[in-house]
Design a protein around this nucleic acid. Structure first.
Length: 205
DNA sequence: TCAATCGCCCGTCAGGGGCA
DNA sequence: TGCCCCTGACGGGCGATTGA
């Protein structure tokens, strides 16, 4: 398992706990024996290092999908993000309707439109590096440039965080569907085993 | 009715990874 | 090596729920 928020002491009541449990469930059912790093006490620094090195949802899910045909991949969405420069006012925030490569998840409805808004900062949108550092003279200009860069970075990170959370939700949904499939498989196998036992066991009467 | 709690979402920061 | 992206962590806001 890569995800052990449920073992950490700084419990944050957001979705991390839920997805962590879910992954544990998937791992248990699928009997994929990841390392037993959660055993015992790991100091917070090490835990943080372990957590930070966990692969991205996209990677995990895509690897998963290569192993299991039924698991959909998370789309790259490069058409939105790479098609337009990031500092153009037409920030293409992913809509509440999205779909995976298999079209399994088509609508989440979890991103209300009232929350999708244009950046409200005073950032001069559309002005791409109007003043290079070499052409700046006064300290005021330098300060303005630094502020502008910070605003741009924050805006990009804001959008990246939204996208990351959206992917995480999709990832959790995929895990949920996989849990359901594996549970059904497990049930069938148990039933099959019982049937075979009945057939093969000698009648002692 | 109202304070406490919960669940969800958001923005921001920090730090690791990928890439030119 | 620096820049940029991704994501865990954190703190805060807000609406819904719950128990006194």
């Amino acid at each position: 398992m890569w995800w052990h928020q449920h073992n950490l002491c700084f419990r944050h009541p957001v979705d991390e706990d839920y997805s962590g449990d879910l992954e544990e469930k998937v791992a248990t059912i699928a009997e994929t024996d990841e390392s037993a790093e959660s055993e015992g006490v790991i100091d917070s620094h090490k835990r943080r290092e372990i957590l930070s090195r966990r692969p991205s949802y996209r990677k995990i899910l895509n690897e998963l999908s290569s192993d299991v045909p039924g698991v959909p991949k998370i789309e790259e969405e490069k058409s939105e993000e790479e098609g337009t420069p990031p500092n153009i006012a037409t920030m293409a925030v992913p809509t509440s309707i999205y779909q995976t490569s298999t079209g399994q998840y088509t609508a989440t409805g979890d991103m209300p439109t009232y929350q999708i808004r244009a950046p409200t900062t005073a950032l001069p949108q559309g002005v791409v590096m109007a003043a290079s550092p070499g052409s700046l003279h006064s300290p005021q200009q330098l300060a303005e440039e630094a502020t502008r860069k910070r605003e741009l970075r924050l805006m990009k990170n804001r959008e990246a965080a939204k996208e990351c959370r959206r992917r995480k939700k999709e990832y959790v949904k995929c895990l949920e569907s996989r849990v359901a499939v594996l549970e059904v498989q497990n049930k069938k196998l148990i039933e099959e085993l019982e049937t075979l036992k009945d057939i093969c066991s000698p009648k002692t009467d």
